[in-house]
């Protein structure tokens, strides 16, 4: 309990130091602008991105059989993260200003997304084979002690 109190107190000190800095450097941090962007970040995540993810998850439960859903969800997560990180590269007009800022190479991005899709497809095939094997095991077990799969020695 003592450790927790110390940790929490240290946290409050760090927060206070950061807030002090925000105000001392108000000309650079534009506190109202920063607060607006903080609120925007919260709304964008909690009321746009997260509900969107939930909606996609809900759709997947309607569209896909249970055994292939996890690999598809994982693949979509990776693709979503890649898309989020590619966004600033598309949004900046920098390539015209600075030739060494090569921006987003759509060809390479395509290859990357293709590789993620291929990895997802492999995981789906593996999940289907596992589910099939499990089903066969179940039917064998429910139809009593059938002939053993193991070669007799």
């Amino acid at each position: 309990m003592k450790g927790r109190v110390l940790l929490g107190a240290a946290g409050l000190v760090l927060m206070a130091w950061g807030m002090r800095g925000m105000l001392v450097d108000a000309e650079l941090t534009a506190p109202i602008g920063t607060l607006t962007w903080l609120a925007g970040a919260l709304v964008a995540h909690d009321f746009l991105l997260a509900p969107l993810v939930c909606a996609v998850g809900w759709l997947l439960t309607r569209l896909l059989p249970a055994e292939v859903r996890p690999p598809v969800q994982g693949g979509l997560f990776v693709i979503g993260v890649v898309a989020l990180l590619a966004w600033p590269l598309v949004a900046t007009p920098a390539p015209q200003v600075n030739p060494t800022n090569v921006g987003l190479d759509t060809g390479r991005l395509g290859v990357l997304l293709g590789l993620v899709a291929a990895g997802t497809a492999l995981a789906v095939v593996r999940a289907r084979m596992r589910a099939g094997a499990a089903r066969r095991r179940d039917t064998q077990q429910s139809s009593g002690p059938g002939p053993s799969n193991r070669p007799s020695t």
């Binding site: 760090l14 927060m15 130091w17 450097d25 650079l28 941090t29 602008g33 920063t34 590269l89 900046t92």
Partner: peptide
Amino acid sequence: AQWYPWPFFFPTMHLWLGWITVGALLV
């Protein structure tokens, strides 16, 4: 990506928000 669509100066804001974030994380 050197993309600055906001009204604050990035290095200063990022520094002080870093203190606040890590402080809030400890709490």
